[in-house]
Amino acid sequence: MSSSLIPPESLARVGEILAGPVTVVIDRREAQRYAYAVGDENPVYFDESAAEAAGYRTITVPPLFVTHALVPPKPANMLREDGLYQDATSVHLEVSRMMFGGEEWDFVEPVCVGDEITATTRLADLDQKEGSKGPFVRLVRETTFVNQEEQLVARSRQIGIAR
């Protein structure tokens, strides 16, 4: 049995809010920049009549855009050597490397331009496992996205693998 990679004070944070609640209005230009940047020129992201014909209230946005719309602006003096921002909400683990393991998304209601979306991220799970290359930690950050009508529009679970 290997020693724990998860300090007790980190384990105690399961369920805690890591970020938010933060609210933004979904901006048409930002969403369209995102759609062009991923090469997805679906008319429902650009043309109001195409979006309405497809049953949307107005122009909708690429499914994963909502997570980027909510990235808070930060000053350059918070940049680390690797280009990432210092993150006061990161969970302390006795590991040297954190990797993105994958994501799980549920889309409940459409997100359209002009919607006011509030996101809250929690530490949903922290679990040590034994892999073929030794012990690793599986960390799950769950974010809920709620609109101006207080409807849940989406839920994401980002899975981090640390070893």
């Binding site: 991923v38 090469g39 997805d40 679906n42 497809a54 994958g102 998304w105």
Partner: peptide
């Protein structure tokens, strides 16, 4: 996002993506 496009391009504008992982 390439992955969601792969699905929505096939399914068409009237379909709705419910989940992806």
């Amino acid at each position: 996002s390439w992955l969601t496009q792969f699905v929505t391009d096939w399914a068409g504008p009237n379909a709705r993506l419910i989940s992806i992982e």
